[in-house]
């Protein structure tokens, strides 16, 4: 699992949501540039591709859509699933994410219980991937 997210609060919440689903092996990258470097490492064989990315839409240095496009052009990630997470419920942002090939778009809610549903979303994508 790779989470690309710059907001410490959201990192905490995503970690909680995934732990509740028994998903523990988490790499956290704090900006889009770190995401780019990670992608290059995987392409060189220095790291293995994750089963699932959770990528924030608005990241420092390189944006979520930029990183998403980069991942999608690389054959190394053919089996990685991608969730784009964002505070924005604008249809424009949502359609950009799906056009670039994100598997899911998650609007980060403002209540704890609702935020935890990202765990179910992740589990569902991981199940699809393994079956």
């Amino acid at each position: 699992m790779v989470v690309v997210e710059d907001n410490p609060g959201d990192i905490y919440l995503i970690r909680q949501a995934l732990e509740k689903r028994g998903i523990g092996d988490l790499t956290v990258l704090q900006d889009g540039e770190a995401g780019y470097i990670f992608v290059t490492e995987v392409e060189r064989g220095a790291a293995s591709p994750p089963d699932l990315f959770i990528i924030d839409l608005s990241l420092p240095r390189r944006s979520g859509p930029e990183l998403l496009a980069r991942i999608k052009t690389s054959s190394a990630f053919a089996h990685s699933r991608i969730i784009i997470a964002s505070s924005s419920y604008s249809s424009r942002d949502r359609s950009v994410a799906s056009r670039l090939g994100a598997d899911r778009y998650f609007v980060k809610p403002s209540s704890f219980d609702q935020f935890m549903t990202i765990g179910a979303l992740a589990a569902e994508l991981l199940d699809e991937g393994s079956s």
């Binding site: 609060g9 959201d10 505070s87 980060k108 809610p109 403002s110 209540s111 704890f112």
Partner: peptide, 24 residues
């Protein structure tokens, strides 16, 4: 206005959720 509104929402969500957790 559009971007500002979205960017404002981000920290706000955390304020809402963590004060909720504090109470809970």
């Amino acid at each position: 206005a559009y971007s500002a509104s979205h960017d404002l929402r981000e920290p706000l969500r955390n304020i809402a959720i963590f004060s909720e957790l504090l109470e809970k």
